[in-house]
Design a protein around this nucleic acid. Structure first.
Lengths: 237, 237
DNA sequence: CCTACGCTTTACAGTCATTTAAAACAATCA
DNA sequence: TGATTGTTTTAAATGACTGTAAAGCGTAGG
């Protein structure tokens, strides 16, 4: 599954970093910390976080400088930045310091607001690219509408079966062990009984069957490979 | 809720902002101000003005940059922009229009000219995009009269439900998460309880149902996609 | 032909997402 | 101001989905 976004917190005060870190954790993000612009830059280049929370008032070479640098360099230009600033009114000299930052939050801020803004920015930066529909014969999976159809007629299935089918259709003609399927569909570090995968395979097949016309049975596309796992294949077994 | 259009003025000189602000007020527009590209961007995303007056020569040369960014991002791409520029040279015109700006006005300008151009741009953009009624079967939403009808008979609903339906009808056949819907219908960074969206969906469905004839239930067009969000679709679930 | 193993199916109880209803809160208008 | 209308929050009810365990099948290998 999609791993949680990683957020880099850049602030010189440990207390603030911690506070934010906790807020991010509870909201389900991964977080990293840096206390100087230099450290931050290294971290960003190395780890490529999904978003940077950057304190405006870093000692020495200020946060703005870092932001400008990040936005100028191609490698890092598309990593969204949210600035943390002290007070609105004072910082009205902010003007010339415009660097293409994606949003800013003024301290003090509520964790809730911060989280909301982070999510909004992430949504804006990543949400735009959605995949094209995948089609096999008359079976189509369309991520944009989050819908599976057979001959244009909707196939009813649960979220897990949808992810499962999505995984198979994007990786056709290959066998996958149950473990591998677990990692991809449920996410790593989720422990499940092995049989659980079978059960969901079963459910997916049932969904496909009950939506298939007599003629082709789309459940047959999901093939059992005895002793190895499962395979999505257009070729008959 | 036939509010006057809201115009965002982006200029670093307070005197100019005030001058324009007065002109807009007397012409019957609402106005907001921002003095930096950063502030402007945040305002635009949060408040979604109907038009942006953008100074070309913002410190840091970021006016153009902002325009480009706004036009690139889906969320803001259809907000018209009028550039304010001191220079008259042809280059600027070409460049500005390249970025996708809708019009430009060279300083110094008369308030009268500015108003005229604003109206022209608004007419054009609302005329092209927002003014035409959208129809699905016998359900029609007409932005011009701000009215929803089923088989020519008015459907009664609140403003929020109207915006919601408008959003759905202009983005059919796609799933949207609750967060995404919030961004589009309420404005980004308005943080609401997630369930609020559900409640309004519920009310919209109710409104559609009680206006539907036995036969078609238009509430069915708004489909719940469990674990993903909602979708407006003409295809049955 | 029997057994053992691996896969499939079913049933179920717990959990989680969505809906619904109602109350609290805001804004608007006379 | 009080009445009206619309919005948000909250909590409880509903219903769908999930993972597990156990029973049922089929098949390969003896």
């Amino acid at each position: 599954m999609t791993t949680e976004p990683t957020i880099l917190i850049v602030d010189d005060e440990a207390a603030i970093r911690d506070m934010i870190g906790v807020a991010l954790d509870t909201a389900g993000f991964n977080s990293m910390e840096a206390e100087s612009a230099l450290e931050a830059h290294v971290n960003i280049v190395d780890k490529r976080p999904d978003l940077v929370l950057l304190d405006w008032m870093l000692p020495g070479g200020s946060g703005i400088e870092l932001a400008r640098r990040l936005k100028r360099e191609e490698l890092t230009a598309d990593i969204p930045i949210i600035m943390l600033t002290a007070k609105t009114s004072e910082d009205n000299k902010v003007q010339g310091l415009d660097v293409g930052v994606d949003d800013y939050v003024t301290k003090p801020f509520s964790p809730r607001e911060l989280i909301a803004r982070i999510k909004a920015v992430l949504r804006r930066s990543t949400g735009n690219l959605r995949d094209k529909p995948i089609r096999v014969f008359d079976l189509e999976l369309d991520p944009a509408s989050h819908r599976v159809t057979i001959e244009e007629k909707a196939v009813d299935m649960g979220p897990t079966e949808y992810r499962l089918l999505n995984f198979f259709m994007t990786h056709p003609e290959k066998v996958f062990s149950r473990d591998h399927i677990q990692d991809q569909v449920w996410g790593a570090n989720v422990y499940l009984e092995e049989r659980t995968v079978d059960v969901h395979i079963g459910r997916l097949r049932k969904a496909l069957t009950s939506a298939s016309n007599p003629g082709i049975n789309y459940a047959g596309l999901i093939q059992t490979v005895r002793g190895a796992g499962y395979r999505f294949s257009t070729k008959p077994e």
